[in-house]
Design a protein around this nucleic acid. Sequence first.
RNA 1: GGCGCCAUAGCCAAGUGGCUAAGGCAGGGGCCUGCAAAGCCCUGAUCCCCGGUUCGAAUCCGGGUGGCGCCUCCA
Length: 465
Amino acid sequence: MQLFDSSQKALLPFQPIQPGQVRIYVCGPTVYDDAHLGHARSAIVFDLLRRTLTAMGYRVTFVKNFTDIDDKIIKKVQESGRSLQELTQDYIQRYKEDMAALGVLPADLEPRATESLDAIFQLIQALLDRGIAYRTPQGDIYFDTSKDRDYCTLSHRCDEERLHRIEPDPHKRNPADFALWKACKGAEDICFDSPFGPGRPGWHIECSAMIDKYLAYHESPYQIDIHGGGADLLFPHHENESAQTRCACGQKLARYWLHNGFVTISGEKMSKSLGNSFFVKDALQIYDGEILRFYLLSTHYRLDLNFNEEDLLATKRRLDRLYRLKKRLYGIKPTQVEPSFKEAMLHALGDDLNISKALAVMDGFIKEANERLDQNPKDRGMKRKFAANIAFLGELLGIGTKDPFHYFQLGVDEETRAKVEALIEERHQAKQAKDFQRADAIRDHLAKMGIALMDTPQGTFWERI
RNA sequence: GGCGCCAUAGCCAAGUGGCUAAGGCAGGGGCCUGCAAAGCCCUGAUCCCCGGUUCGAAUCCGGGUGGCGCCUCCA
C-alpha cells in the first residue's frame, strides 16, 4: 500500500504504527446545514480507504467527528429559536441518513466537540502550562504560532505576504495566531463553563482533543496512522491541529495526511458561500444513492470532480454492466472470492486508491465472466465463484449489493409496474399467436414509456431505461 | 502577491523514460435474435503549445497558454 501524504507531497509506502492495525481520523461536517455532494465525496473516499485497508487484513479503527459548536451554528440557533442541542442533533441525524443512503459505513466512533470538552480543556491547559498559549484581557486564549518552530511544515503555505493580509487584531501577538478558546460574548452567545471561564472552543482544538481522547496511541510514538479531510482543510485547519498536538504532546499528530479533491459544478468549487451547493438529499430525489456513490467514487480521490449529469449517467452505464452480470447469476449462492481477482483489485487500490485501475480490473472480470457464461452456461461451480467476486465488490467498493431486477426498475411506481406487466402478458399472447406486428407495437409502446424488454429463455424481463 | 493542482480520443479517465498509449460511456460494423435488448467480436487518440535533455519522452527540465483551488467559514 502506498499513499500520497499531503505534508511531504509524495507517495509513501504505508507502514502502520502497530503491525496489522490502522487508526484513521477524518474531519467530519460542521452541522449547521444539510450535507452537500462535497461532504458526500469526502465521506465516500475515506469509506473506500477504510474498506480497502480492511480487505487487506488490517484491523481498522475509524473515527469521524461532528463539529457541533461554531459561529455559524450559533447564528442558526439564534435565527431558528431552537436549542443548540436540538439543531445539531437534527443535522447529525440527517447527515447519517444521507451517508447511509450512499453506502457509507458508520464510523466506529463519532465524537462531538461539545461532548469532548474535558479533553479540550486538558489540551488548552497543557498549552498554557507550556507557555505556548496566552490569554488576552478579554479572556480569549490564543495559540502563539511564534512558539512553534515547526509551524507551517504541514501545509507549506505560510509566507510574509499572507500574514500582512490577515486583519490586524490588537489582542494577538502574531497575525497567524488562532483562537483555542473564545470567551463568552454576552447573553446572546452560547457558552460552556470551563476552567478558563465561560466560553467555547476554537475550531481547531476539538480535533486535536478528540484524537487524543478517542484514538491516539499514547505510548511512544504518540500518533495516529492516517488523518483525512477535504483539501480545503489543509490550511489552516490541519496546520493548526498539527501545531496544537505537536506543542502540547511533543509528538506528531499523524503519520499520513490525506486530502480529497473538490466536487465542482460548472468547473467551480461547490461551497455554501458561492451558493452553488447541491445537497445530498436533493440529489437522492433524482438519483439512487448507489449510483451517486459510484459516480463520486469513480474519479481518483485527489482530483477535482466536475459534477454533471452526463458523466453521472455514463458512469451509471458502467455500473449497469455489473448488475447485468449479477442478473445472469441470479439465485446463485456465492462461494469464495477468486484469489486472483481479489489480489488484482487490492493491488490497484493499494496504489494510492487508484480507482481507475481497480475499475478496469472489475470491467475485465465482468467481460470474462460474460464470455465464459456464454460458452458454458451450466457450470455451477464457476457461477458461484463469479457470484462471490460480485459479493466481494460489494464489500470493497460498496456497490452491486442490490437485487439486480430491482436495480433496473428503480423509481418505477406500482401503477406503472402493473401496467408494464399487463402489457408484457398481452405481448406474450400475441407472440404465441405469431402476431409479431402486435408484439412489436407493444414493445414500441413500452419503449415510449421508458421501458425496455428483454426476451430470454427464462421469460421476458424488463428494465427502466 | 504567495503556494499549489490540472491539461491524454466526442465525453469520463489510467499511464510519470522504451513492446502495438489501460478501462468505461457514446458512435460505426458484425455474431446472436421472429424483431429487439443484453452479451460477445471488430473499430478510434502520438498525448495544450514552443524549446531542451536523451539512442529513445505523454512521461524529465525550461518557457508559454488555458482552467481551477488554497491563503477568510468551508469536505
